[in-house]
Design a protein around this nucleic acid. Structure first.
Lengths: 210, 210
DNA sequence: CACCGGCACATAGCAACGCCATGCTACGTA
DNA sequence: TACGTAGCATGGCGTTGCTATGTGCCGGTG
């Protein structure tokens, strides 16, 4: 192929990542050669941009967390922080279901430092929402926002990974409402009000396919 | 090597599975050739017994669920079914931590029918415990045992997969007590009594390495 | 007893895999 | 104009999972 650019082209990197994400969705096996087949670059581009296939998978995990962060960012905070927490959960679940194989890639491999940092950013979004709920006196004053955010995330992740790529049927996701309600009530929120808030937030919207 | 037996030897199958499990634990890459290296069998044995590496991984997942079932079976039912539920959780978590890579193999691949069946057996054990709690009037009379067992499992799995092979630190497992308590209280149990029961059950014992 | 069919396994080779040494080409610099 | 450098194409290396072929042992049959 003709050489188009002299300096390292970020578009090539993006092209490869998007193609990898697409192949992941269409369940084609991703190999070094199949990844570059059809593109205008050779196998060496993978080494220039990612330093090998391992680096490509790392970058793909990063991309997954980036998309997750973008999806969580679409949740606009309302005057009901408990609804917001549930809405973040719905966005989290929706993101995983839009590309379950990418979600599996994000969490299947043993976590490395950069992956853990990307995951921390996800957790941080939840922490902020939990802290808003505490400041709005929906939670007990001594509630640990990190702890509550972690528990919330664990519930999301447990449900998603057992349903998206696991043995449980899809309607199991409906349990999210009562599980989150139980958790938030244990943190101090009032039962009926909490359930109503969670129900309003736990609405799964389906975004455009990619 | 000398041919020892005429008919398909189950010991060879067991030998290969145990070696695979051991290599998984020691984090050696498991390839067809590395698996049979050091044994007295050739690569063809993998095809005789497992019909290829895919079948070997399937059998290894089955082995993982078998070990999990055996571990759960060590929990002897007491007169406190809520403690038993938490103890099952501790056994579940302990099993996953004894061989985290095996746990990942069990849940990483897209579930096939036989895997789903093995997972159903795990869930069934939890359902029975949940039903005992309902019959002991610790839960509301209209509690759905399948639903509650599923929620319990989701909490275990969420915590384990975020800690064992994920980004969260180990002490996050301590959240299991309050998470399970919140769930069981929402199902009808009394707060203080529930917490005491869960605390007594959620004791992580370390079994012998294998 | 002699023979043979079938099964489990050993050997060797194939296509495809990730990876990398080598060389070419297009730019920036002087 | 001439050179250094960075990105990429090519081709080959070692290894992977897999399988075609050959070998040796067992059990049934004449």
């Amino acid at each position: 192929m003709a050489v188009m650019a002299r300096s390292k082209d970020p578009a090539v990197r993006t092209l490869l990542l998007e193609r990898a994400a697409h192949m992941l969705r269409t369940r084609e096996p991703i190999t070094l050669r199949s990844l570059v087949a059809g593109t205008c670059v050779s196998t060496m581009a993978v080494y220039t941009h990612f330093n090998g296939m391992d680096g490509m998978w790392r970058a793909l995990r990063q991309e997954g967390f980036t998309r997750l962060a973008a999806r969580l960012a679409t949740v606009v905070p309302s005057d009901d922080p408990i609804r917001d927490l549930a809405a973040l959960g719905a966005a989290y679940v929706g993101n995983a279901f839009d590309s379950p194989d990418l979600y599996r890639v994000m969490f299947d491999a043993t976590f490395e430092l950069e992956d853990a940092h990307a995951a921390d950013q996800t957790l941080h979004t939840v922490i902020l929402a939990a802290d808003r709920a505490r400041q709005a006196h929906r939670f007990d004053a001594d509630t640990d926002s990190l702890e509550l955010a972690t528990k919330t995330w664990a519930i999301w992740h447990g449900l998603v990974s057992l349903v998206a790529t696991g043995p449980l049927p899809r309607q199991t996701l409906d349990y999210g409402v009562s599980m989150l309600t139980a958790l938030f009530v244990s943190a101090g929120d009032e039962q009926a009000r909490c359930r109503a808030s969670v129900k309003r937030g736990w609405v799964h919207d389906r975004t455009q396919g990619g």
